[in-house]
């Protein structure tokens, strides 16, 4: 663990901080009905554009202000945690299933299978992803389901590449060779021997991928093809806030800060996990 030698305490401190950020976000999402002062969809046209409480004309009952329809920003951020985190995690898991499977197959079977899967990976990487996502959502229409699928298409490559590389390294190792020699079927080798071996790396990739999925989801909402425009997802709030950036800065600022904090948390956690769970990658470097 040479690269940790410089600052192990700081590194793990950051990791814990990241985990704490995420934990808070998850708790907020779970306890949304208890925490949020207002229903997230409650419209009050007469209270449009109320600024945050500490600004002139701000009121305490709308701590972070209201949006263009007089909905409470703080409440929408709290409820939005459910959508944004849920979609991010779901996309990351689906990506793991697709990418893990393909990566295992590519690494283990090699040759034609590997060539085909590597081709898929490279095609996917060469495609301007944002456009790709726009197309697909134009076809499927919005909604959480299609968005999760599209985001999974964005993240599967991460898993596939890591798993493939690791399986290639493991394939020649004694315990695999031995298993093959005694006639253990391929499927069993993949599931019982190789999958557990690559699982730690997948957890690491998972935390980064969830972060990426949350960011991409926000970008898609921003381009107008998000989960559901009126549901309080953080990305949709940002998109809405953009139109009022000159007159109501708080509409875009607070959801953006929220996204940055949660993604930061996931990345810090991922870094930390990588150092703890993936000695292979660290030692290979």
């Amino acid at each position: 663990m040479s690269r940790l030698s410089s600052s192990p305490r700081i590194s793990s401190g950051l990791g814990v901080a990241g985990a704490a950020l995420l934990a808070v976000a998850v708790l907020v999402a779970l306890a949304a009905p208890l925490i949020a002062p207002w229903p997230p969809m409650q419209i009050d046209l007469r209270a449009r554009f109320t600024p945050p409480a500490w600004e002139a004309h701000g009121v305490l009952r709308h701590l972070l202000g209201t949006d263009n329809l007089g909905r409470d920003i703080a409440s929408r951020i709290v409820w939005g945690a459910r959508i944004s985190l849920g979609v991010g995690v779901a996309a990351s898991l689906l990506g793991a299933a697709i990418g893990g499977t393909l990566g295992l197959c590519a690494g283990y079977f090699g040759r034609g299978v590997d060539a085909a899967i590597s081709w898929l990976i490279d095609v996917q990487l060469a495609f301007p992803f944002t456009l790709f996502a726009l197309f697909l959502l134009a076809v499927f229409g919005g909604g959480p389901g299609p968005v999760v699928v599209v985001l999974a298409l964005a993240t599967w490559v991460n898993y596939a590449r890591v798993v493939r590389a690791q399986v290639m390294a493991l394939r020649g190792q004694d315990f695999i060779l031995a298993a093959r020699a005694v006639g253990v079927p391929s499927g069993r080798i993949l599931l019982r021997y190789l999958l557990p071996a690559v699982a730690p790396a997948m957890v690491v990739v998972g935390s980064f991928s969830a972060a990426q999925a949350i960011l991409t989801q926000a970008a898609l909402s921003f381009l107008g093809v998000g989960v559901d425009p009126s549901s309080p997802s953080w990305g949709a709030m940002l998109d809405l806030g953009r139109s009022y950036i000159l007159s109501a800065w708080w509409m875009a600022t607070f959801p953006g800060v929220t996204i940055a904090l949660v993604v930061l948390g996931a990345n810090l956690l991922g870094d930390w996990l990588r150092e703890w769970l993936d000695p292979l990658a660290v030692s290979r470097r």
């Binding site: 600052s7 700081i10 950051l14 960011l215 926000a218 970008a219 949660v262």
Partner: peptide
């Protein structure tokens, strides 16, 4: 540079990774 400076720079780069680019753009404009 080990220690705090390194950690600070690391945190900064982490923040860079965490901010939605378009949001940062908006904030810069603002």
């Amino acid at each position: 540079r080990g220690g705090v400076a390194s950690a600070a720079l690391q945190l900064l780069s982490m923040l860079g990774l965490a901010m939605p680019a378009f949001w940062l753009g908006l904030m810069l404009v603002l």
